[in-house]
């Protein structure tokens, strides 16, 4: 009895907290709700501030398909982001594994040096990278897009931290069984670290999908453009068709939102991966 009373007293004291959290939640969700409703409304209604669903969705969609390279750009983004993700988690997991399980003084120093690359801003490398990519004829290709982001200090660090959970006993046992060092990585490490791979893949995919500055530099041809570039172009004109624009924004956000809702646990693990 007293416990129940206690509980309701606790809840009562939490009322201001609830109110605050509800307000913050509404503010957080509203712009996305707005994006969805605006995509179903005519521009006039969007401008009038209508915040309920309309019946202009199909028109917005047809306008978008007719006035832009929607499917081409969508396909580009899927291709670029997928290639970057697969190569990135492979290369960085190899390194994270090497740094953690074979670590010695020299490797720790190297690790420290590689970490410094995290501080190099994108604008500082984009001009030489552009020159490099154009020299090797990689402009407007998936390689031009992905190569600079395949090996990142952040991902190496994440795999290194998580490799601490990989028991070295397994390695010893596998060595006695006659497995080579690389076979241990492929046959033992990779299956055990599935959840780390999932988290790393989610975060890399999101980053690759959302990238904007580098794609704008390296994709000089319209047919090679990504989804964020496409919607940015839609908003570039003097008069903006907001209904159609929001339909484009919705398409650009759909994959990342699906990833967010389906794989939220991995996403959270991915961004906080190096805090442990």
């Amino acid at each position: 009895m007293t416990e129940m009373k206690n509980k309701s007293a606790i809840q009562k004291r939490l009322i201001p907290t609830y109110i605050f959290l509800i307000i913050v939640s509404i503010i957080s969700v509203f712009p996305l709700y707005w994006m969805i409703t605006a995509a179903t409304n005519q521009t006039v209604d969007v401008s009038r501030g209508k915040i309920w669903f309309g019946n202009y969705m199909v028109e917005n969609f047809t306008n978008l398909v007719n006035s832009s390279n929607l499917w081409k750009s969508f396909g580009n983004s899927v291709l670029y982001a997928t290639v970057q993700t697969i190569l990135c988690i492979f290369v960085c997991s190899l390194a994270g594994y090497g740094f953690e399980l074979y670590h010695d003084k020299a490797k720790d120093i190297l690790f420290g040096i590689l970490l410094m690359a995290m501080m190099i801003p994108g604008v500082a490398t984009m001009i030489p990278l552009f020159t490099m990519m154009s020299k090797f004829k990689l402009l407007n290709t998936v390689w031009g897009f992905a190569l600079p982001a395949i090996s990142t200090p952040f991902m190496i660090m994440m795999f290194r931290q998580n490799s601490r959970n990989f028991p070295p006993d397994i390695m010893e046992a596998a060595r006695i069984d006659g497995l080579s060092e690389f076979a241990i990585f492929f046959r033992m490490y990779m299956p055990v670290m599935k959840s780390t791979y999932a988290a790393a893949a989610v975060i890399t995919f999101m980053n690759a999908w959302n990238a904007y500055l580098w794609p704008r530099v390296v994709m000089t041809d319209n047919r090679a453009q990504t989804m964020p570039m496409l919607i940015a172009n839609l908003a570039g004109g003097y008069t903006i068709d907001y209904g159609m624009l929001m339909m484009g924004v919705l398409f650009c956000s759909l994959p990342t939102m699906i990833v967010f809702f389906v794989l939220q646990k991995q996403f959270t693990e991915g961004i906080t991966g190096s805090v442990k």
Binding site: S28, M35, Y212, M246, V249
Partner: peptide
Amino acid sequence: VFLPCAVSLVSYSLI
């Protein structure tokens, strides 16, 4: 509260 991270920087700028 975490939801805004689901959209790209270009997307939310346009929103």
